[in-house]
Nucleic acid binder design. Structure first.
Length: 130
DNA sequence: ACAGTGACAACAT
DNA sequence: TATGTTGCCACTG
């Protein structure tokens, strides 16, 4: 099989973030062995809009990825309410009006173990690869 | 091949 | 605390 591209690796990791927990872009980048690719992680999530109709990407809890300051990084000037904040609140993560998670230290995801990351990096954890 | 583009992060004011 | 600057990098035309 072809090696997974970076985006697929990001999606595989994000899928593992449990409900009610959050992870930072940089944290995910580090998990994938690319400590300086935080921006690329954000770019990968942004790219989800390109296949919004594809069910294979419908189960990615992108809302659980925030920046290292515990703050939501997306802003839609057209709406007063932030969709990501609403989704997080709905699953038990408190988000203030300033788009900052309240006491983010209580909600950071601990991350994956090395053996699980190895499967992802090697491309053994993508849907359809079974 | 190369310049442009961000849902970043760390650091300096 | 709040901006501003700089370094980063995968991906795209």
């Amino acid at each position: 099989m072809l090696p997974p591209n970076f985006y697929d690796q990001v999606y595989a990791v994000v899928r593992r973030i449990p409900t009610g927990r959050v992870a930072s872009y940089g944290q995910i980048a580090r998990m994938l062995g690319r400590p300086n690719a935080a921006r690329a992680v954000g770019y990968a999530l942004h790219a989800l809009k390109d296949h919004a109709e594809d069910p294979a990407y419908a189960d990615i809890p992108w809302q659980r990825v925030i920046n290292s300051q515990g703050r939501i990084s997306i802003v839609n000037p057209l709406f007063s309410t932030n969709i990501q904040a609403e989704l997080l609140r709905a699953e038990g993560v408190p988000v203030g009006d300033n788009l900052r998670v309240i006491q983010p230290d209580l909600y950071w995801w601990e991350g994956l173990h090395l053996v699980e990351l190895d499967d992802i990096v090697r491309g053994l954890d993508r849907p359809g690869d079974k």
